[in-house]
């Protein structure tokens, strides 16, 4: 932890209102992004608000072995995943298990049947700036099987390492990598479709 963060944690432990206001302002947006990606927009606010109450009550359990932000993100991810697991079956959205091997892109010799479509923009920030595309990615994230989405969110959005992800989700490293690649390929197919048709 850097000096600023140490000071902030001391403020939280002392129950200072200013410290909580600063922490909520500083970290809520990324916490909401995680919660939205895992549990959907409709549930994210409640999950993050609930996490802040937990933090208020249990800040003493923060041992400082990771950054405060990482600790908060872990709590949010766990809470969002718990929420998904607690949903009744009729509400559950397990996602459609599709073949994400992209085998339909290749001929029997493993060569491209058709060249991959040329995207209008292929820089990360140009992709981010395309609001319709980002909305479409949100939709597809929620339609993914929970297992794929959880790994994808923790790895690609939260930038957690594989050891942390495997620990959080009780997965083997090889299983996590397979799920991550399937999730990414699912999004690649979605973006290809979006670029070709202009629709989600």
């Amino acid at each position: 932890m850097n000096k600023n963060e140490t000071s902030l944690v001391e403020g939280l432990r002392s129950g200072r209102t200013k410290a909580f206001h600063l922490a909520v302002t500083r970290y809520s947006a990324s916490m909401l992004a995680t919660a939205r990606a895992i549990a959907g927009h409709a549930n994210a606010d409640d999950i993050v608000q609930d996490v802040w109450l937990t933090v208020f009550e249990r800040i003493d359990s923060f041992e400082g072995r990771s950054s405060l932000k990482t600790w908060l993100q872990r709590i949010v991810a766990n809470r969002a995943i718990s929420y998904l697991r607690s949903r009744p079956p009729e509400v559950s959205r397990p996602g459609v298990e599709e073949d994400q091997s992209a085998s339909d892109w290749f001929d029997a010799s493993g060569s491209w049947i058709l060249p991959p479509p040329v995207w209008h923009e292929d820089s990360p920030y140009a992709l981010l700036a395309a609001e319709d595309l980002q909305d479409c990615i949100d939709k597809h994230l929620l339609d993914m099987p929970d297992s794929q989405r959880n790994v994808l969110v923790l790895r690609d959005i939260q930038q957690m390492n594989f050891a942390e992800i495997c620990n959080e989700l009780s997965l083997s490293a090889s299983n996590a990598r397979v799920l991550l690649h399937r999730g990414r390929m699912r999004l690649m197919k979605m973006v290809n479709h979006f670029e070709e048709t202009g629709s989600c």
Binding site: S28, A29, L32, R184
Partner: peptide
């Protein structure tokens, strides 16, 4: 394109961090 997509996902979080709604706080 694959690299751009993966990188854009990481940037989502950084972008979100700049856009917190005061009412939520």
């Amino acid at each position: 394109q694959f690299q751009a997509l993966v990188s854009s996902m990481a940037s989502r979080n950084r972008l979100a961090a700049e856009t917190i709604v005061p009412e939520f706080v």
